[in-house]
Nucleic acid binder design. Sequence first.
DNA 1: CGGCGCTACGTCCGTC
DNA 2: GACGGACGTAGCGCCG
Lengths: 88, 88, 88, 88
Amino acid sequence: MADGSATIEGATTIAADRLRSFIERVERLEEEKTTIMNDVKEVYAEAKGEGYDVKTLRSVVRIRKMDRAERQEQEALLDLYLSALGEG
Amino acid sequence: MADGSATIEGATTIAADRLRSFIERVERLEEEKTTIMNDVKEVYAEAKGEGYDVKTLRSVVRIRKMDRAERQEQEALLDLYLSALGEG
Amino acid sequence: MADGSATIEGATTIAADRLRSFIERVERLEEEKTTIMNDVKEVYAEAKGEGYDVKTLRSVVRIRKMDRAERQEQEALLDLYLSALGEG
Amino acid sequence: MADGSATIEGATTIAADRLRSFIERVERLEEEKTTIMNDVKEVYAEAKGEGYDVKTLRSVVRIRKMDRAERQEQEALLDLYLSALGEG
DNA sequence: CGGCGCTACGTCCGTC
DNA sequence: GACGGACGTAGCGCCG
């Protein structure tokens, strides 16, 4: 057929190509993501090499990401639970 | 062969059985471990059903497991980093 | 007070007991889990004592688990495709 | 003081700047990562808009990744066995 | 102590 | 829109 697409086979081929396109776009993005994650690890490694405590650095990043109000709420709840258990 | 073990093949069989035994013992134990982990999840789910905050409960368990001195040390370091950044 | 629970303090006490119960159940289960994990380590140690390579044994266990997971995954994917065809 | 850094306060300031640099590099990278993750979501959304089943697409991506991982794992295991034979 | 594997946590999705 | 389940990432601990 001249236009090469009006058959069922042609339609299937187009769908398969489209599917492949989506899959490969996702895989490409995930590859980029992996690169970024490795970069993060490298930054922490560099900081560690200068004597910083990585675990604490991660805590700092996590805490800065939390909204201040939410953070205080969380701390207050934890204190409540601990004091209910008689621990402080 | 009468004694059933003096050939290379016999030795191989015995070794394979022994290997299989180790592997299966480990797999059995890991299955038990998975059961326990599910039990833990159920306890948290039950607590959640009674209005407790699961995230905080997990924090409590984690904190109780930490040695008190280590806990304070960690908090002090975090405070130091945060105040160095002008956040508190 | 006769029923011992109608005050805010009473309510707090009851909640603390319940809280303590949850926490201790979790801690008990985690203790069991630790025991199991130690058992696993012992099995590997015993195998090592008989000349097996522990790293390889761990790989075998891991791959057998991956095989199971992948098999289930493939079956789930097949189900997805079949149901997609049945509904299309 | 001429060089402006030999005091304890000066040292603290320098450390704080360095600390801030690490933290901000990480935060910048995590921002990029979030962007990528949103891009992935958009691809899936677009595919969904063309009638593809997102859950199935995700399964395909995951299985292709597992296949790669399992292949590498199998190769590593083979290497282990081969080197074990070479050293035995 | 550095890498690796496992567990745990947060996030996203479908459901009710 | 809250809930629960599933997935992927991050954190932790063991092993070498």
